[in-house]
Simulated assay, not measured.
Amino acid sequence: MPTPKKGARLGGSASHQTKILSNLAAQLFEHGAIKTTDAKAKLLRPYAEKLITKAKAGTVADRRNVLKLVPNKDVVNYLFNELAPKFESRDGGYTRIVKLENRKGDNAPMSQISLVLEETVSAEATRATRAAASKKAEEAPAAEVEEAPEVEADTATDAAAEAEATEDSAEATEK
Rank of each mutant, 00 (worst) to 15 (best):
K42V: 13
Y47F: 15
R127C: 04
A55W: 12
L67M: 14
S111P: 03
E118T: 14
R45A: 13
G58L: 14
I113P: 07
K50C: 08
R64M: 11
V70G: 01
L100T: 09
G32K: 06
T36R: 08
S111W: 03
L28F: 00
L79C: 04
E82F: 06
L28Q: 10
V98A: 08
P109A: 12
L69R: 09
P85V: 12
N107G: 05
E30N: 13
L100P: 10
E49V: 11
A57K: 05
E101V: 04
A108W: 01
A26M: 09
L100V: 13
A39I: 15
K42Q: 14
L43I: 07
S122Q: 02
V60E: 07
F87M: 15
T120M: 03
K68F: 13
I52D: 12
T59F: 03
K54H: 08
D38T: 15
I113E: 00
V70Y: 03
A125N: 04
T59W: 07
A41E: 05
K42W: 05
L28E: 10
S89M: 04
P46N: 02
N81Q: 13
T36V: 03
G92P: 00
T126Q: 04
R64G: 10
E30L: 15
E101P: 01
S111K: 11
L79N: 10
R64A: 07
K73G: 09
S114Q: 04
R127M: 04
R130H: 02
A41D: 02
E118Y: 05
S89I: 00
R64W: 10
T53F: 00
N65S: 14
D62I: 02
A25F: 07
S122F: 01
K50L: 06
A48H: 10
R90A: 12
K73H: 06
S122P: 00
R103N: 15
K50S: 14
L51G: 06
E88I: 05
D62Q: 13
R63T: 12
Q112G: 08
K35Y: 01
P109M: 05
K104V: 15
K56P: 11
N77K: 06
V66F: 08
P46E: 13
V121P: 02
L51W: 07
H31A: 08
E82D: 12
